[in-house]
């Protein structure tokens, strides 16, 4: 069932920018259009590019914020989130706990 939603309606997580848009909903209570515009502006792309995996695969690697495929040396976990927090200018609670904000 989860996969059904992911394919039908989901933003795609770290395949694209779903995690980034989600963070704006969680940290700032942004409704979806505002959250998408905010992330698109921070990434320097159009809103329609946010769910384009062809565009975002390369951009995520360029921005060093973690990619979906297992690339040696590409940031994962905490390392990626440190860069995401800086890119989006948003707090991520676990980084504050670790003194990495």
């Amino acid at each position: 069932m989860s996969i059904g939603h992911a394919l039908a309606s989901g933003m795609g997580g770290i395949r694209t920018t779903g995690d980034l848009v989600a963070r704006m909903q969680l940290r700032k209570k942004m409704r979806l259009p505002e959250a998408k515009k905010y992330v698109a502006d921070k990434l320097g792309v159009g809103v329609v590019d946010l769910t384009d995996s062809t565009v975002m695969r390369g951009l995520r690697e360029e921005l060093d914020i973690g990619v979906i495929t297992a690339v040696p040396g590409a940031p994962k976990g905490i390392e990626a989130k440190v860069r995401i927090a800086k890119l989006l200018d948003v707090d991520i609670p676990c980084l504050k706990r670790l003194g990495l904000e």
């Binding site: 989860s2 059904g4 939603h5 992911a6 394919l7 039908a8 309606s9 989901g10 933003m11 795609g12 997580g13 779903g18 848009v21 989600a22 909903q25 979806l32 959250a35 809103v47 329609v48 769910t51």
Partner: peptide, 15 residues
């Protein structure tokens, strides 16, 4: 069998 949203209309998934 399978339908979906228009490209660009995707939403955030929580579970």
């Amino acid at each position: 069998r399978i339908m979906g949203v228009e490209p660009g209309h995707e939403v955030v998934l929580t579970k």
